[in-house]
Design a protein around this nucleic acid. Sequence first.
DNA 1: ATTCTCACA
DNA 2: TGTGAGTA
Length: 126
Amino acid sequence: MEFDDDLPIYSIGVASKILKVHPRTLRIYEAEGLILPPRRGGKRLYSKNDLVRIECLRKLIHEENLSIPGIKKLLEFTPCWKLKECSPEKRKKCRELSGKKRKCWEFSQRTCEKSCQNCEVYLKEN
DNA sequence: ATTCTCACA
DNA sequence: TGTGAGTA
């Protein structure tokens, strides 16, 4: 099943082991707002897609020589409807609802190549 | 046993 | 980025 990929199931310990990165690094990514792992009982839980996103971050940092602030800049200049596969109609609603509350990329979590349905999720939540 | 936050010889 | 302290 594919929708399982968004289920938060990995603890930071498991995630860091799979990704072979220091847990501290993962916490830093979150503090920088590059990844938004939901928490349960104060514990971060990463989904399969989160792991993919993190792999993307590390690829950008190491292979593309981008810094954390650099990536944040990149995201700021990349509207969410370019990151995701949003229909013009959906896009319109999205902008009406989001307004100036949050920056696009703050809720447009997605992987490098695959899109997600956060748009719909966001619409439901509001 | 694990994770969390904070701070740094 | 990594590591240790003190908690929860």
